[in-house]
């Protein structure tokens, strides 16, 4: 899901938003804060935190990227790395740098219970919840992009910003929506991962961000279905790698996959071969 966020933003404004991993981290922290400080139930905190991440995404765009829209892409890229570091440190100041446990008592009790079990594999309701939310979000996202007026505008902005403006699309607003959507998805991912592994820390976005980036590259950056598939493939590759080689290699596999993809199929699985043409005038 983080990979999808990356790829969406890249697809629309050709920016690798390195601060996206931090939105994921913020999602987890927001949720925990809502649960432990305000005592909100898990589901409410989940959606509220997604909304906050959407807002963070938009703010990030307005504060950091919008002033650089006409500048060289490298400037925006460096800003993205800067924002990533800034957000990490901000989180450390607010929530402290030590890993925190996820308030498990807030999770619905049946999450622990086994939902399905076949041939020795037990899946809990929590597994199913994660799986279900992911599927719903991916399908929903695809529908939004494919069917809605807003999705059409997003694709138009991705293909030609000047022309999009000439058909009456408010380009900046569409970009904001994209950041909001990517932020909400990233936030949801952050909450689920933090709850699943029962831990969250300010730098959790970094590794996750890099892996998601690897998944997006594998799928072909800019392609949403590619990012979805890339994420699954990478996850499976990591699990097998950890199982058959050594769990020490787990993180290395993402990087290895990324390097192999860049060398042999730079366009990724679903990527389009980019022509060296400048899109904007």
């Amino acid at each position: 899901m983080i990979a999808v966020g990356y790829t969406m933003i890249y697809g629309v404004i050709l920016l690798i938003n390195f601060a996206h991993g931090e939105i994921y981290m913020l999602g987890a922290f927001f949720a925990v804060t809502f649960i432990s400080l305000l005592g909100l139930p898990f589901y409410v905190a989940f959606f509220l935190s997604m909304a906050c991440c959407a807002i963070c995404g938009v703010l990030l765009d307005i504060v950091a990227y919008r002033p650089l829209r006409q500048s060289p892409r490298l400037a925006a890229l460096i800003t993205a790395i800067g924002m990533s570091i800034f957000l990490q440190n901000l989180a450390m100041v607010i929530w402290g740098s030590r890993p925190k446990p996820f308030p498990n008592e807030a999770l619905p009790a049946y999450f622990e219970k086994t939902a399905v079990s076949f041939s020795g594999v037990n899946l809990s309701w929590f597994h199913l919840f994660i799986f279900g939310v992911t599927i719903v979000m991916m399908v929903g996202l695809n529908l939004i992009i494919k069917k809605t007026r807003w999705g059409k505008a997003m694709r138009a902005v991705a293909q030609n910003q000047t022309m999009a403006a000439l058909t009456g699309i408010n380009v900046n607003r569409v970009i904001s929506y994209t950041f909001a959507l990517a932020g909400a998805l990233g936030g949801a991912a952050g909450i689920m991962v933090a709850a699943f592994y029962n831990s969250l820390y300010p730098t959790m976005g970094y590794v996750a961000g890099v892996k998601a980036f690897a998944a997006a590259v594998l799928g072909g950056i800019g392609s949403v279905p590619g990012a979805m598939l890339g994420g699954v493939v990478l996850g499976v590759a990591e699990a097998f790698g950890a199982g058959y080689l050594s769990s020490l290699y787990r993180d290395g596999i993402s990087y290895a996959v990324m390097i192999i993809v860049i060398i042999f199929i730079p366009a990724g699985l679903f990527g389009k071969v980019l022509k060296e043409t400048k899109k904007s005038m």
């Binding site: 007026r149 059409k152 505008a153 694709r155 138009a156 293909q159 030609n160 000047t162 022309m163 999009a164 000439l166 058909t167 009456g168 699309i169």
Partner: peptide
């Protein structure tokens, strides 16, 4: 605009829909 600037990855219908965006 010059050079037509249609959206190459959108269908003809979608291009026309965007014309009526507002």
């Amino acid at each position: 605009p010059e050079g037509r600037m249609i959206f190459p990855l959108l269908t003809v219908m979608e291009n026309l829909d965007l014309g009526a965006y507002l």
